[in-house]
Nucleic acid binder design. Structure first.
Lengths: 184, 184
DNA sequence: ACAGGCATGTAAATAGTTACATGATTCG
DNA sequence: CGAATCATGTAACTATTTACATGCCTGT
């Protein structure tokens, strides 16, 4: 059976404890969204499909009077998740509008090209900060025996910091060549 | 008027010289595809739309008996491109299946988690190599007065190399903790 | 009373890939 | 002659986002 990547996000998210669609969405937004996002429009239909396929099981778990269904992984679901984890990853996609703009920046004066890089730097610095703010929570998970979220988070922080450095160097370089342009 | 990002890829690609849809696709595959891809299914319809909007202009440019239409940017198209370049980039997306798998790797033995990182490393090393192979061409463009493709390419190489380093460190760390697991 | 968060869902639109069809030309 | 490349296009499919609808519960 062919499952979408979103299906595996869900399987992974319910693999440790049963969760509702709403909780899965919130978790994705706090964790994987930086390298794999998912919206309600994907999550709820996918929960139905996975339940129909017997990979997860929905259980009524109301909070007070408010209806709520949490989904728990089944043995078949766990097998499917592990199977997927054991296969080489196939999707590596980057869509970075800043790089695209920089690629075409030859039609602009150098200073404006530097501005593109400044935007990229600011964005990456902000992202790094956001991720650092998530570290305490991930550290708690680590102490509770789940080291991978922290591992991945630290990778993300480092990656963003490196990009900030690259932007700084590139900005300097472009501003220097802007000065040369001006002195011609 | 609202244009898709793919529209700007096309505007950028025809901004220096007139090109056919086929050439645009080939160029995208050699250059921007690492941070912004485009398929025929997007390019040909978009060329029609841009021509209808007066941002590019199609000219018959047969090669021998083979029909061929190249599109040149118009002054309006150039204005639209510059306008877009002067606005802060809004799209920053990463979809990395390896990170997703690593995030959920707690359900696997440590050695298998390390394998995920090994796959990521191999992929990034391959990508870095591919990009390095493109350097001579980008250097030629630089000498011809187009420095940005090389600038972006070098950024891509560096970025992939850093990721390889991160993978190496992470792999070592996971294999060490696998040994600890075994000696328990 | 009302804002904000919890909870589930769907419809419509947009984006993007894949696969296919067609036919010319060039090179070995 | 056959394979590869040049060249243009479309149809079907899959993925994904956005926006909306509904209603309950909790805290101020």
């Amino acid at each position: 059976m062919e499952l979408s990547a979103t299906a595996y996000v869900i399987l992974g998210m319910v693999s440790r404890e049963a969760r509702s669609g709403y909780e899965i969405k919130a978790l994705v937004d706090e964790t994987t969204r930086f390298f794999w996002a998912a919206s309600y429009g994907q999550i709820y239909p996918e929960l139905k499909r996975l339940a129909a396929a017997g990979l997860i099981e929905g259980v009524d778990a109301p909070r007070g009077e408010r209806k709520r269904t949490v989904y728990a992984i089944t043995p078949e679901g766990e097998a499917a998740l592990k199977d997927w984890l054991r296969q080489a990853p196939a999707t590596f996609e980057l869509r970075e509008e800043g790089l695209l703009k920089l690629f075409f920046a030859g039609v602009l004066p150098r200073e404006e090209a530097a501005e593109i890089v400044r935007w990229m730097r600011e964005h990456r610095a902000g992202q790094a900060e956001q991720l650092r703010a998530m570290e305490p929570e991930a550290r708690e998970k680590e102490e509770a025996g789940e080291p991978f979220p922290l591992l991945v988070l630290r990778g993300g922080i480092e990656f963003n910091e490196r990009l900030v450095e690259w932007c700084e160097r590139t900005e300097t370089q472009l501003l220097e060549s802007a000065r040369e342009e001006a002195s011609d």
